[in-house]
Design a protein around this nucleic acid. Sequence first.
DNA 1: TCTGAATATTCCTTGACAGGAATATTCCTT
DNA 2: AAGGAATATTCCTGTCAAGGAATATTCAGA
Lengths: 110, 110
Amino acid sequence: MKTTLNALAEPNRLHIVELLRDGPLTVGEIADRLGLNQPQASKHLRVLSNAGLVEVNAIANRRIYKLRAEPFKEFDSWLESYRHIWNERFDRLDDYLQDLQRKDVNHDDK
Amino acid sequence: MKTTLNALAEPNRLHIVELLRDGPLTVGEIADRLGLNQPQASKHLRVLSNAGLVEVNAIANRRIYKLRAEPFKEFDSWLESYRHIWNERFDRLDDYLQDLQRKDVNHDDK
DNA sequence: TCTGAATATTCCTTGACAGGAATATTCCTT
DNA sequence: AAGGAATATTCCTGTCAAGGAATATTCAGA
C-alpha cells in the first residue's frame, strides 16, 4: 500500500498508469505521448514495476508494459474500510467532545 | 487526485489517516499514538488539511481533526475507471502484438 | 496576571529522488 | 559482420520535503 501510493504520487508515473488504462504500451510510445525522453520513461516504469503496478512483456527489441490488477484490487479493499465515513453517520463529533469533557473532569484518575 | 496521493504517500500521514478512520482525534493524541513529537504531527496534519483529507474543529486549546469524505469519494470514482482491468478481459496483449506487426509492415506509410 | 498546557510556525540540516547526459545492452536488418 | 533501433543503466546535480530544535501563540485556571 505504501509503496503503491509512493509510486503513484509522482505525476509522470500517474500519467503512465492512466495511459496504460487503455491497454498495453511500448516504452517508446509512452515516452512519446508524455513528452518524456526515453531514459526517464524507463526509470519511471522501473519504479512502477517494483511497486507491482505494471508488468513487462519482452518481444524482441521492445518491452511492452501493461497494468497489473492486484494493486488496484488491494486499493479497492483498502478504500472499503473507509466507506463508513460517508455511508453511516460518521461525524460523531458530539460524542467525542463529551469524551473529552469526561476525561477533563476525571483528570486525577490513574 | 495528485495532491491526495502525494499526501498519503508519506508513511506517517497514512498512519494518521488510518487512525482517524475510527473517529476524530486531537493533535496530542495523534502524536502520542504514533510516537511523533507534536510539531511533526502538526505539520503532517497541515499537509493533510491542505489536501482536503481532514478538517479541523477548534475547541479552546485543542484542535480536533477528522476525516473528510470527499477525497475518498473521488478516490473511489477514480478507481472505478480501472475496474475493467480485472472485470472484463483486459489482457489483450495478442491484439496489441498484431497492431505492432501491422505498423511494422506498413512503416513506410505516411 | 501568571503559569502551564496545547498547538502552530520558523529555521536549519540532511537525505531522497527526479531529470539530464552519456553509455551499455540487446536485437533486427542488411 | 555492421549499423541502427529500442531499451536499460549509470553518474551527476539540483531540488524538495521530512525531521529536529527552538520559539510563538492561544487559552484555561489559580
